[in-house]
Every structure is written in C-alpha cells, then in structure tokens.
C-alpha cells in the first residue's frame, strides 16, 4: 500500500497512526459510525467542536503534527 502521501508514518494499516491529527479524528469519531441510541450520552454528535475552541485545536495540531511538507510541498 502507498505510504508516501500519508501525512503520518504508520507501520501497518489500520493500527491507529499515532500522529493522526485530532481534528481529522474528530471528523470521523463524532458524527459518523452506525449511530445507535445509547442510554447515557445523547447529544455528543451534535456538538462537535462547538464548545471546543477550534483555533486552539488547530494550532496545537500544528505544533504537534507539523505540516507534512514543511518546505512548501512537492507542488
């Protein structure tokens, strides 16, 4: 499988790359999946990032996970 375009270095597929940016993770964890009615938490999918400072989120993503092409990219 191709690795070159992946902005993190995961040794094997599907094992949860450590460097996966939180913002991308939340895109997938919050409002997706087979949504089935739970007993306790009812609204989490509806409040993604609303109460979370998106700027804080993004800036810390950046410092932890630098852009994959720091030199301006292979454009």
């Amino acid at each position: 499988m191709q690795r070159e375009v992946v902005p993190w270095d995961n040794p094997e597929p599907l094992t949860g790359p450590i460097g996966v940016p939180l913002v991308d993770l939340l895109d997938r964890l919050l409002a997706t999946g087979v949504v089935i009615s739970g007993d306790l938490v009812i609204a989490i999918a509806d409040v993604p990032l609303v109460r979370l400072s998106l700027h804080a989120l993004l800036s810390s993503v950046n410092e932890r996970v630098p852009a994959p092409w720091a030199d301006g990219g292979p454009l």
Binding site: E12, L14, T15, L30, T32, G33, G38, L40, V41, I44
Partner: peptide, 20 residues
Amino acid sequence: VSAAAASCPTVPLPLATLYH
C-alpha cells in the same frame, strides 16, 4: 477501533455510545 479492525472486519461506533 483500530486494533479491532486490524484483526477482523469492524464497524466503529461513534465516540460515547453507552448503556446502563
């Protein structure tokens, strides 16, 4: 979720699906 998917076909559930 990733560990499960590495071992067999997996359907992830959204964060925070809980039952009594």
